[in-house]
């Protein structure tokens, strides 16, 4: 089981907690001979709305619709009245290995945009808005602060989703 543990050590600095070390090590790299889905999985969110509300007349919700034909989208009713499972997958697999890790740090990993679009679509459908973060205040520049800033900038597009 190989893990992309690139920025892990750096971010461990930013947060004292050991858990931060898992920031970028949370996803398995595609392993030749392993499960080919690891290279490009479906990214799903569950929306607490009916499928008709999520896709009225078959139209994709904002801002997911703006990803156009870079993604395929799957919609199905969630079990137990939990709403709608809305999933997207890149048509072109994202960069892997070291190149993939660099893309994640620089913000060029296309999955980040897909995750952000899914989360925003969910929030718009459920609440009518996408919560904006507070602007960071004064903030004395520190070494760990810089690393954390990077993690914060990527946080809306990262995660296990």
């Amino acid at each position: 089981m190989r893990r992309t543990a690139t920025m892990a050590a750096a971010v461990a600095l930013a947060g004292a907690g050991a858990g931060m070390a898992r920031w970028l090590s949370s996803r398995r790299a595609a392993d030749p001979g392993g499960d080919p889905r690891e290279a490009n999985r479906w990214l799903p969110v569950t929306v607490n709305r009916s499928p008709e509300e999520v896709m009225p007349e078959g139209r994709l919700p904002e801002p997911l619709v703006r990803l156009g034909d870079t993604v395929e989208v799957r919609v199905r009713k969630a079990p137990g009245g939990r709403g709608t499972e809305l999933a997207a997958r890149l048509l072109e697999p994202p960069p892997q290995g070291a190149r993939g890790a660099v893309a994640r740090i620089s913000g060029d990993d296309p999955r980040q945009e897909v995750r952000r679009a899914l989360r925003e679509a969910k929030s718009l459908l459920e609440t009518g808005e996408v919560l904006r973060p507070d602007e960071p205040s004064t903030n004395r520049p520190t070494a760990t602060g810089k690393v954390l800033d990077l993690a914060i900038r990527r946080a809306s597009g990262e995660g296990r989703l």
Binding site: M20, R132, I152, R154, S156, R160, L161
Partner: peptide, 18 residues
């Protein structure tokens, strides 16, 4: 709440879900 944390990626790295 699913919509109250603007940095979900950090919490997911720490706890699996934010």
């Amino acid at each position: 709440c699913d919509n109250g944390n603007t940095n979900p990626g950090i919490g997911q790295a720490l706890f699996g879900y934010e």
